[in-house]
Computed example of a mutant assay.
Amino acid sequence: MKTNVAAGALALGLSLAAGAAGAFELEDAGLTVGLTPTISSDYLFRGISQTRNRPAVQGTIDIQHTSGFYVGAFASNVAFLGTNARQEIDALAGWRTTVAGVSLDLGGIAYTYPGYRNPTGSGLYDLQYFEVSAKASYEFEPLKVLAAVNYSPNYQLESGTGIYAEGGVEVALPFNLTLGGRIGHQWIQNNTRWGSPDFTNWNVTVSTKLYDFVLTAGYFDTDLSRSECFGGQKICAARGMVYLSRTF
């Protein structure tokens, strides 16, 4: 059930390619390369656990040209009930620019699960899918406002059109702390095939930088009851979560 990319230390639902802070330069090629390993107490995508409430080890690579075009990839362990999917590898590509102080990111994400098999007649549908995305952020210290929209013509489990919209804020606090909040809503055309109704998710996080690492702790929840959550699973419930990342 899938990312964030996702993948940045403060942007689990908003972006799987969280930018190039701390990255290194390949000046002759006009490239900036960022590598971000992460360890996490869970892997949540839009508020839903992708590891059945277990820890995750993840990695993100982001390669951006001076023109603003970028490619990247995200990898994580996963565990979906009733499937043999054990890893997720996502491919990302797009273009970043700034217009009138607004940072824009227009791109696409292919979500893949290498090794996953969908046997004929099993009743299972394909986990793999593709989204196009548009993200924007605007900063006026100490506040940063963020928004994103993702669209899939055939969402995961072949569930038809999927649209996800999210908004959020980040506030710089004393003592090198950042307070963040997100709220998003997922619309799915074929809810029966997907396994849940359309849903809203939200989170509140606090992060701090420790030397070259970013430590984040937060509260995450959805409005799905257990009976609405993929056959009564516990993967949609409220939870606390902590994760540690570093960008090279």
Rank of each mutant, 00 (worst) to 15 (best):
residue 142 P to G: 02
residue 30 G to L: 04
residue 120 T to K: 13
residue 22 G to H: 00
residue 150 N to P: 11
residue 113 Y to F: 15
residue 100 A to L: 15
residue 73 A to V: 08
residue 44 L to G: 01
residue 18 A to K: 00
residue 204 V to I: 14
residue 44 L to A: 02
residue 128 Q to W: 12
residue 162 G to F: 00
residue 76 S to R: 02
residue 217 A to I: 07
residue 185 H to P: 05
residue 146 L to G: 03
residue 49 S to Y: 04
residue 106 L to T: 07
residue 242 V to I: 14
residue 147 A to F: 03
residue 26 L to V: 13
residue 137 S to E: 07
residue 196 S to D: 09
residue 31 L to D: 00
residue 152 S to V: 08
residue 34 G to A: 12
residue 94 G to F: 04
residue 190 N to V: 09
residue 121 G to S: 06
residue 94 G to H: 01
residue 155 Y to L: 08
residue 202 W to H: 11
residue 117 R to S: 15
residue 202 W to E: 02
residue 206 V to S: 01
residue 178 T to G: 00
residue 46 R to L: 09
residue 247 T to Q: 08
residue 21 A to I: 13
residue 65 H to G: 12
residue 182 R to Y: 11
residue 12 L to P: 10
residue 186 Q to S: 12
residue 167 G to K: 04
residue 63 I to T: 03
residue 76 S to W: 04
residue 191 N to Q: 15
residue 1 M to F: 13
residue 29 A to W: 11
residue 242 V to W: 01
residue 240 G to N: 08
residue 216 T to M: 06
residue 29 A to N: 08
residue 43 Y to D: 11
residue 248 F to P: 01
residue 244 L to Y: 00
residue 134 A to K: 00
residue 81 L to K: 15
residue 27 E to Q: 13
residue 15 S to N: 12
residue 44 L to M: 09
residue 143 L to T: 08
residue 109 I to M: 11
